[in-house]
Structures are given as C-alpha cells and as structure tokens.
Design a protein around this nucleic acid. Structure first.
Length: 130
RNA sequence: GCUACAAGCCAGGCUAUCGCAUCUUAUUAAUUUAAGAGGAGGAAAGUCCGGACAGCACAGAGCAAUGCACCGGUGAAUAGCCGGCCUCCGUCUCGCUUUAAGCGAGACGGUGAGAGAGAGUGCCACAGAAAAUAACUACCUCAGCAAUGAGGAAAAGAUGAAAACGUAGGGUAAGAGCCUACGGCCUUUGAUGGUAACAUCAUCGGCGGGUAAACCUUGCAUGCUGAAAUGCCACAUAUAGUAUCGUUUGAGGGCGGCUCGUCCGAGAUACAGGGUAGGCAGCUUGAUUCCCGCAGGUAACUGCGGGAACAGAUAAAUGAUAGCCCACGACAGAAUCCGGCUUACCGGCUUGUAGCUUUU
C-alpha cells in the first residue's frame, strides 16, 4: 500500500519545457490569493504534476518566498488525494501551477482553506473531461 | 551585585504526527521498499576588494584606459590585517613667561584617498578695497589756491575658513626680508641613528595662500570572460534557401581597446526558417574551520604534534501543524569554492577594563 500524503520529485513539475507549455497553452482561473494554471494532457505516466511560484517583486526577501512556497506545497500535499484518484479513474493527466498573488505573508490556515477550494474546483473541471 | 565599553561565542528548546532532497547498508524487475546518518548563516546578504579553478589567448611596439600611492611586516593575494613614522585634533602631566593666556616637552586617545601645488591650466561661496604677481581708507612725494590728479609704498585698518613669515633694531620722503640679530617654515648637501618611512645636528639657497575626493604630472602595477565558465555522453538535425563580400588582387578571425605589426586563413555576414535546451562530471575535504599542547614573533601570523567538525539542491531539499517550557525568538535562506571589507540585527553567555554600591 503506497503512502497517501507524498510529494516526491516525480509529482512536481520539473521540466522547464513543460512549464512553458503550461503557461502558453494552459487555461487559468483566479481564486483570491492564487492564480492557477492548468493543462490536461495524455502522454505522461504521472497522473498529476504540480508547481508553485511567488513573484519576487511582491516578496523581495528569499526567506519570505520560501515560506509561501512551503505553505502552498504543504496544503496541496495534504489535500490532493481525491483529485489524484479522480484523474486516475478517468485516465487523464493534469499539469498544475500555483502562483501566489497576495501582498502579505499568508497564515497557514488561510492557505489550507483556499487550496482546498482550488482543488474542489479542479475536481469539478476534471469531472467534465472525457 | 549594578552600569558602561571592548573582544569572543551562541542565535529558542523538547515531544508527537505528516512530509522533502542527499548519502550509506540491505532489498527489489524497478529510486521499489526498509533502516540509519548528517541536512543553511554570522552575516548564507551587498557584490565593494583579493585569490583558487576553468576556457580562450600567450611575436612585439606605441598610444590610450583602469587601479594603487608614508614605511616595514604578514599572507596565496588585496584597497584586508599587524607594527611603526609623519600631519592635524583632544585630554592629562611637567617646565618657562605670567593678569588672562601663550609657548615648549612628554604620555595617552583619536584622525588622515598620507606622492607632487617649486611643470601648467582651472577654481576659492558670503563678506571684504583686494582671494593672487592686491592700492578702498589711512601714509609719503610731486603738481595745484582748492577740488583733484600723477606716482611711491604691503608698515596700520574693518572682512573672512584663509590676507601675503614673527619680534626687535637699522634704513627711508613714506615704506617694504631692503639690511641685521634672534626665532619659525620650506628646500639643497653632508654627518649620525634607524631595514625603512623618518628623526637629530650642521650647511647652501629661499619665504606672494589654499585646493590634486578639479583637470593634470610623476612612479608602480594590470590579458579578457566567469559555474548560464568548461569537458563528456545522449537525442535531434538542414552539407537546404535568398542577398552581399571573398579564395593569394585575401573575405573574415585571433593577439583585452585603438594604431601599426604579426599569425591563421576559405569561408564570412545579414534575412527568413528548423532542431535541442535531457543526463553525468565540474560539485564540495579545502591556502578549510575550531579546540588543546609546545615553539618562534611586540603583534598580525607561522611551524610541529594531537583531537573534533564540515549541506550539496537544480522550477531548486533542509519543511508544516499541534502541544508544553523559557530568556517569548531579531536580521535573515547556501547555488563553484575560499580570504577580507561593508551593511542588517531581539536577546543571551563568557572574559577583560573602568566607575558605583554592599558585605566581611
């Protein structure tokens, strides 16, 4: 039985090429502190790949950027399972990128709630896919 | 015990749950699974200096450019560090003259981009007659009844950050280092001491300011690029097209920039278009850091012996949540690696120095 709350290298969006493709061709929506980019594709083995980013213009200190990215990653790690299962069920793949657009350092609880809502929305979108 | 200063060290802790990258050992068809180990800083920051390392270059000359600028040491090296010299400032002590105050000597602390203003050019706010080869007032001579004019003259005057060596005497129409004595400063030469900067003494010549963090002059030094360096492997391809120039009548390129010179030399440039951007090495143990002992040195630092410690990501790990404790947690996140400098910063600990207080 594989562990549920993992977030390994393979589950992260790593390739520069894939990321550029995601920003170029992917769809997006905004949910207050986040802007989400997502793109469905069919040619990978990994079901769900994820990345997170923060603008260095908003957060000038590297410490703060790291903090935000870690919070997003943590919230995502704990809540992504249902989306992952749905995608596996439908046999489709999804690339996903979070960008934090808020101006102030977030609290964990807020990030957790919002990430949950984002994932719910993505679950709906995934449900409509064939 | 408290306060101030200086130097050094530390930079919340523990537990639970979930998680991340690396390495090791097992295990597996398989980075599959399991266990274990260690996993950001004193500044990791600014990128301001200096190196290591790598690639390219490694005939040369001139010019330009940049950097540095008292001396010695240290070190791989520096604009760092240590020690010294000098300038200026402050405090204290002593001596002399003495109303105040001033002068000299010494000690301590600080300060200085500390070569050259006697090569040239420029600049010096305000005030002031005048800010550099100075005549406004006052002074002297001459002309004139006078007003005033011509000339001499830097001794006196308000200003200013700075005013044309100081005092005394001679000298003169009045004056002036114009002359003399003493003193001050700069410079030449010599002697002595010191590795040297420099100091002391003698001596020649001189005394019309400051500014080189203004240009500049002098001396010395200096290849460029910077881990997105660079090497290898894999994958993919287009030795295609158009235009211009060119193959000994030499396109173009290298030699840090320019000029010359020199070497290579058959392709070069532009337009439009296509492919790749994955892995491994570099990559972390090194001029390393800390502790102890011995030795050398005023010190920075060095040598020898012993011990301990040291992350390695690559869309980028080192985390999240909860609870408890306390001094209630600042500045802040490695990206090739070191040595410095600078800047940011809540608090704690240790040592030393000074002052105050308490007790014996």
């Amino acid at each position: 039985m594989a562990k549920l709350f993992t977030l390994k290298k393979t589950e992260r969006l790593k390739s520069r090429k894939q990321t550029e493709q995601l920003f170029r061709e992917g769809k997006r929506f905004t949910l207050t502190p986040f802007r989400i980019y997502y793109l469905f594709n069919n040619d990978k083995n990994i079901v769900l790949q994820f990345g997170a980013g923060v603008s260095s213009k908003i957060f000038k200190k590297a410490v703060d950027r790291n903090r935000v990215k870690r919070l997003i990653r943590e919230a995502y790690r704990l809540q992504k399972i249902s989306l992952q299962e749905k995608l596996a069920e439908k046999n489709i793949q999804l690339n996903l990128f979070f960008i934090y657009t808020g101006n102030e350092l977030p609290v964990y609880k807020e990030v957790f709630d919002k990430t949950g809502k984002v994932l719910e929305k993505l679950l709906l979108i995934a449900g409509e896919q064939k």
